[in-house]
């Protein structure tokens, strides 16, 4: 059995079609990156400008953070690709189960007197 596990390869087995797809994906990832930078700027400006009420700003920047989460997971980490069903299942489960944890630790920790 020729296992060929520790030897490098001469060339890539990618077909031309796959190469084109990879190029396109790379471009999409650059666009995603540009979005992330823009979102980060927006978040910092939203807080730095101090024009909106804090309640609104906080919900806004958390919303932006979730968009970044989506971009990272689905574009940089390829969750959108096929063969990622189980990865999606577990990631989404983890995120969903985190919500009650965080909410409880913020909201139901008794009467806080500072």
């Amino acid at each position: 059995m020729a296992d060929h596990l520790s030897e490098p390869f001469e060339k890539s087995a990618m077909t031309n079609e796959e190469k084109v797809k990879t190029e396109r994906e790379m471009r999409i990832q650059f666009i995603a990156f540009a979005f992330m930078i823009a979102l980060t700027f927006l978040a910092f400006i939203a807080v730095g400008a101090e024009v909106a009420p804090p309640g609104f700003v906080i919900s806004f920047i958390i919303f932006l953070a979730f968009i970044q989460l989506f971009l990272q997971l689905y574009y940089f980490m390829h969750l959108k690709d096929k063969d990622h069903g189980w990865a999606n299942t577990f990631m989404v489960s983890g995120l969903v189960l985190s919500i009650p944890t965080i909410v409880a630790l913020i909201l139901i920790i008794g009467v806080v007197k500072y």
Partner: peptide, 16 residues
């Protein structure tokens, strides 16, 4: 990926 999903809940606890 399973490990990372576990990390999510761990970080969630610290965030909370």
């Amino acid at each position: 990926w399973v490990f990372l999903s576990g990390e999510v809940t761990m970080f969630a606890t610290f965030f909370g």
